[in-house]
Design a protein around this nucleic acid. Structure first.
Length: 294
DNA sequence: CTGATCGCCAGCGAGTCGTA
DNA sequence: TACGACTCGCTGGCGATCAG
């Protein structure tokens, strides 16, 4: 199988090209004082700035669809499906807050926990800065620099995006024991900040989130230094589609082993009984997780 | 002072829900 | 069924804070 491409500058050009077919330049770019179209405010820009909001929904939709296409190929190998906006009430994945993408045994939007194989939360941004140029009534895009040259804080580099991904994952984990065997992966296209290195490793250790995976092989220009992996691989950067595919297949296989052999129904039932003596749902969940951990 | 980090906040768009 | 009010998740700029 030909190696598919991960996230590169090409995807961002494609995003703007496709979006310009349904949206105006003013909806997708900032307009500088000298009438230039920029994707982000450059770091040194001192003029009057506005905050662009109309682009956000387009970015969310594009990156989720792009992730879906990558996962579809891997799902097909396993004779299962990659589905966008999956609803599963038991796991508190509601219509208002569905799973961005999930790998499932059926292709339905509404799923039962036992048919969900893996859950993916997509947190991707426009990473580079771009200028939209008009040439002969046509458009072209010029890359102005990587994310260190502009004011925006894309994707997983944002602390509140990280906290949101963690919060949603915990919501799924504590919703039902039936989520216990379902891996949750956060897909991004940037590294995570240093202050989250130990956090992502701990989240993996505790079994809450199996990985923060960046699908952007080189987010910085000029071979800028960027992390490949944290100590126990809570964060991973993939450099090729096959590397991504291999890791995902290994994860799904490991989870099946964990499910089959690690805990008996008797043990699980006893843990629930002990955990149920705690006062709040949150405490019950913490107790159960701590019992499952050792 | 400068640069980095954190989390608050905003507007947009899609979807939901109540009402007639 | 049609429609408007409402909610929620998306994103990124901004002020506050801190280290050097």
């Amino acid at each position: 199988m030909a190696d598919k491409k991960l996230w590169t500058k090409y995807q961002e050009i494609d995003f703007f090209t496709k979006s310009l077919e349904v949206a105006s330049p003013e909806q997708l770019f900032y307009t500088t004082e000298d009438k230039k179209y920029y994707a982000y405010w450059p770091k040194k820009y001192k003029g009057v700035k506005t905050t662009l909001q109309s682009r956000n929904a387009f970015i969310g939709a594009y990156t989720e669809k792009w992730s879906l296409e990558l996962l579809k190929d891997i799902a097909r190998e396993l004779n299962v499906y990659a589905v966008r906006n999956v609803v599963c009430e038991e796991l508190e994945l509601t219509k208002g807050s569905p799973a961005d993408v999930a790998i499932c045994k059926t292709d339905s939007l509404i799923q039962k926990p036992e048919d969900i194989i893996a859950i993916f939360e997509v947190k991707m941004s426009i990473v580079w800065n771009w200028e939209l140029l008009k040439t002969n009534s046509d458009y072209s895009l010029k890359c102005l620099g990587d994310y260190q040259t502009h004011q925006g804080n894309p994707g997983l580099l944002r602390s509140d995006s990280m906290l949101k991904a963690i919060g949603k994952s915990i919501s799924v984990r504590i919703s039902s024991l039936n989520s216990a065997r379902i891996p949750i992966i956060i897909l991004g296209n940037t590294p995570v900040t240093k202050s989250y290195y130990t956090k992502v490793d701990n989240l993996k250790n505790y079994g809450i989130i199996q990985g923060f995976w960046s699908l952007n092989p080189s987010p910085l220009d000029n071979n800028g230094e960027n992390i490949k992996s944290t100590k126990i691989e809570g964060f991973l950067r993939f450099d090729s589609f096959s590397e991504f595919r291999n890791n995902l297949l290994i994860l799904l296989k490991e989870e099946q082993m964990f499910f089959a052999g690690m805990r008996t129904k008797h043990e699980l039932g006893r843990f629930v009984e002990i955990a149920n003596k705690e006062e709040t749902y949150e405490r019950k969940a913490e107790k159960l997780l701590s019992l499952m951990r050792d």
